[in-house]
Write a protein that binds this DNA or RNA. Structure first.
Lengths: 177, 177
DNA sequence: CATTTTATTTGCCAAATGACAATTCAGTTT
DNA sequence: AAACTGAATTGTCATTTGGCAAATAAAATG
């Protein structure tokens, strides 16, 4: 992609600062697209029992949006919230779509985004199926150090799919090594 | 989409018959795209212990392909195999890409496909995290009756993320109701 | 159809995780 | 500093699931 093309694209994004705990997306609203330059965010929803389930953590340089809500322009079932103060750049679907139509390379890039997300979801599904909670915990602290530092353990627990007390025990065992 | 457009698209697909156990995709190859008109298929890969894990079941009218491999034209990590005799229509990435470039509606449709897959993966990840194996089993036999009828239980077990014997116990409990 | 192979079920015990309550810890407020 | 609040840890016990081996059932083969 030429520098010019990139500048053209970047130009359509809006800077947005979020302070800790501020919401980028609330359940029922339609998701915009956000590029996270600084800070941490998380997405969560509620399970059948009404308990919060963290579905994703986001570190800097990541794209943050509810795929279904953004691309289909439907109400989101997720909440996305800043865990720390954040600096980000956002764009609406409408604008991004204009870019897609006018810039073929960006269209390809957009498809790449989706595929990447798909791959990481598949990976996570598999991990939940064939790794123990302890292994998943290890993976998380290895791969996502920053996240781990700032995030409350109860969020990590629900992300991993275990109770708070199980996570606590896992950590106790883990720290012995 | 006009009938003409649709005919144009369909025209680029090739009919393909697969007999039971035949492979549509083998690990290490690059995935084509397949539309399954009749029959059942499954995708699987191997976990760290070397055991087979079924990652997906496909019933008729479904699209069958390894997203990462197809869209990024990279080697697949999955195997996709016919569970019963199948009638299908396939297309290569190259040809589909030509269609994407020449038919904007089809491009949109293609994006929709990806988003749909993404949504269903997210759903599945969540299900693994906050539903019991028994609930997931119930869901499977409710939503995918045909699959359930023809598929070996060991495949279902690895898809659900439980051992064969656990699934067997789940079924025993379940049949009491 | 008899034999062989593979899939499924079952029993037994161990390990992992959940549920719930009590306690400790850390941060905030007054 | 004391009181308060929510987070994290810990203990206890129940439940779920795994691992393994044996028994049975079903499917494939000659």
């Amino acid at each position: 992609m030429s520098l010019e093309t990139i500048m053209n694209i970047v130009d359509h994004f809006e800077e947005r600062k979020l302070s800790k705990n501020e919401f980028f997306l609330k359940e029922g609203k339609v998701s915009d697209f956000l590029y996270l330059a600084e800070g941490l965010m998380r997405a969560y929803t509620f399970d059948l029992k009404g308990d919060e389930v963290t579905t994703n953590f986001y570190a800097k340089n990541r794209q943050v949006y509810d795929h279904a809500s953004f691309f289909l322009q439907t109400a989101s079932q997720e909440n996305i919230q800043a865990i720390t103060d954040c600096l980000a750049y956002t764009i609406t679907f409408e604008k991004m779509n204009t870019l897609f139509h006018s810039i073929p390379e960006y269209r390809e890039y957009g498809r790449g985004m989706l595929v990447k997300e798909l791959v990481s979801f598949k990976k996570r599904t598999l991990a939940v199926i064939n790794k123990s909670a302890e292994q998943r915990y290890e993976d998380l602290i290895k791969d996502d150090k920053e996240i781990f530092q700032f995030v409350q353990l109860k969020y990590i627990a629900s992300y991993l799919g275990v109770t708070n007390s199980s996570l606590s025990r896992i950590r106790r065992e883990f720290s012995k090594h």
